Amino acid sequence: MNNRFMGSLGYRLQPKSDVTDRYHPKRQATTHRPEPLRGLLGGAANELSQLVARAGRLERLRQRLKGRLPAELSGHCRLANIRGDTAVVSCDSAAWGARLRYLEPQLLDALNRQEGLSLRRVRVKVLPHTAPPPPPPVPGHLPQLNEANADLLEATARGIADAGLSAALRRLARRGRKS
């Protein structure tokens, strides 16, 4: 789809073949007869509708694969893509990927037989999930040290030979004592 003729309201403007834009003589001017965007996106031959259909098919296969995996594995592995005769599955870690590789023959058999696919192999990609960063600390709010932890710090300080570290632990323990 040529975005050059997209209007600001989501309508595609039809080019006039006999008139040029007076500010840009090499460009064609556009008419003000908008064509609804809905009509452009609805066709079966449209690339966007094909992409949406493929994404929907992959999501259905992803859910079916999740149901066929053992419970401990299903939360760590997911179908990422189907490329030709290969199912690409992403896993959280190499350990989960190794466990998935042991199940490859059963997975291929199930997907081919029950889903009507003709897959020959499973390619495992390790994509570790990164944990979201912790929320920033609230300004002026310091964690409180309770009495039990102050006792543990004091006991640890008594068993440490390094005088500087021992003194630092004792100072920290005093902050946990109620005055």
Rank of each mutant, 00 (worst) to 15 (best):
M1R: 10
N3Y: 12
R4C: 04
F5R: 15
L9E: 12
Y11N: 15
R12H: 05
D18K: 04
R22P: 15
P25M: 06
Q28S: 07
A29K: 05
T31P: 00
R33K: 12
P34D: 01
P34S: 08
P36I: 00
P36K: 00
L37T: 02
R38M: 03
L40V: 11
L40A: 09
G42F: 14
A45R: 14
A45K: 14
N46A: 11
N46V: 13
E47H: 09
L48Y: 10
S49F: 02
S49M: 13
V52N: 00
R54L: 13
R54T: 08
G56V: 02
R57P: 00
L58V: 05
R60A: 11
R60S: 08
Q63T: 12
R64V: 03
R64A: 10
R64H: 04
L65M: 04
P70Y: 06
E72V: 06
L73F: 01
H76W: 07
H76V: 11
C77H: 01
R78I: 02
N81E: 15
I82R: 05
I82K: 03
R83V: 15
G84M: 11
G84E: 15
D85P: 09
D85F: 01
S90I: 05
S90R: 09
C91K: 06
C91F: 01
D92L: 04
D92C: 00
A94G: 12
A95F: 03
A95Y: 05
W96H: 06
W96Q: 01
G97C: 07
G97Q: 09
G97S: 10
A98V: 09
Q106D: 12
Q106A: 15
L108G: 11
A110W: 07
N112S: 08
E115S: 12
G116F: 08
G116M: 11
L117M: 13
L119C: 03
V122K: 04
V122G: 01
R123V: 05
K125I: 14
L127W: 08
L127D: 07
H129M: 09
P133L: 14
P134V: 02
V138D: 07
P139N: 08
P139R: 15
P143C: 05
Q144P: 01
Q144V: 14
L145R: 01
N146Q: 07
L152Q: 13
E154S: 15
E154P: 00
R158H: 13
R158M: 12
I160W: 08
A161D: 12
A161C: 01
G164I: 03
S166L: 07
S166F: 07
S166C: 11
L169E: 06
L169A: 09
A173L: 10
A173V: 08
A173S: 14
R174T: 05
R177T: 12
S179Y: 09
S179N: 09
